[in-house]
């Protein structure tokens, strides 16, 4: 089973843009280790726990958002794999109870691969009031490059590169996600 890092697709403009959200939850076990408390030791007061979503998983969330967009553009006929992280910058932590919104846009795509630009936004639900509901605020950008594996492995003649014929990138997890999101 694929480890899904987005909960719902909320907008899909085929070949152009995909928007997805992720609700950060304390039920995710890794948050308890990231970061666990440092107990006090002689000479140190220690540190309390600080559960925040690891930046690497935010990156994965954007990679899934952009990857579905790129895969969808070719009808999920080719295997789309993350090949390069061009830019990744995040300015704020995402703690439990927050919602992340990933917006991925295709900048360029051809048979060989695709490049995407991405914006990460955060909604801190506690920041809203009855008069002014909480809003998404931009917290970072993640630009990625994807390779169309089938094309590249065939044309480049890379020795020993044997991959299964079935599309192992886009399995049931992504299909279910799109279906339950209404796409």
């Amino acid at each position: 089973m694929r480890w899904m890092w987005i909960d719902r697709v909320i907008e899909l403009v085929p070949g152009q843009r995909l928007v997805a959200i992720k609700n950060v939850s304390l039920a995710e076990e890794h948050l308890h280790d990231h970061f666990a408390a440092d107990p006090p030791t002689p000479g140190s007061r220690g540190r309390p726990a600080l559960p925040v979503m690891p930046a690497s998983l935010i990156l994965e969330g954007m990679a899934q958002t952009a990857g579905i967009l790129v895969g969808h553009a070719s009808g999920f006929a080719t295997k789309v794999i993350l090949a390069k992280i061009g830019t990744a910058s995040l300015e704020r932590d995402a703690g439990p109870g927050c919602t992340l919104r990933y917006t991925a846009t295709i900048e360029r795509m051809d048979l060989v691969g695709a490049s995407t630009s991405g914006v990460v936004e955060l909604m801190d639900h506690a920041a809203g009031t009855a008069d002014q509901p909480a809003r998404f605020e931009r917290i970072g950008v993640i630009d990625l490059m994807f390779s169309h594996l089938d094309h590249n492995m065939g044309a480049a003649g890379a020795p020993g590169a044997a991959f299964p014929k079935h599309n192992f990138v886009f399995g049931e997890g992504f299909k279910t996600l799109l279906r339950t999101s209404g796409f």
Partner: peptide
């Protein structure tokens, strides 16, 4: 290898040109 594709995309943007597949770097030679 993936950097070559990245370079093609970025050159297109920087110079406002269109680069066809295999036009800058060779393809399908093998």
């Amino acid at each position: 290898s993936i950097d070559f594709l990245d370079i093609v995309f970025k050159l297109e943007q920087a110079f406002g040109i269109k680069i066809g597949q295999g036009e800058l770097f060779p393809e399908n030679v093998s």
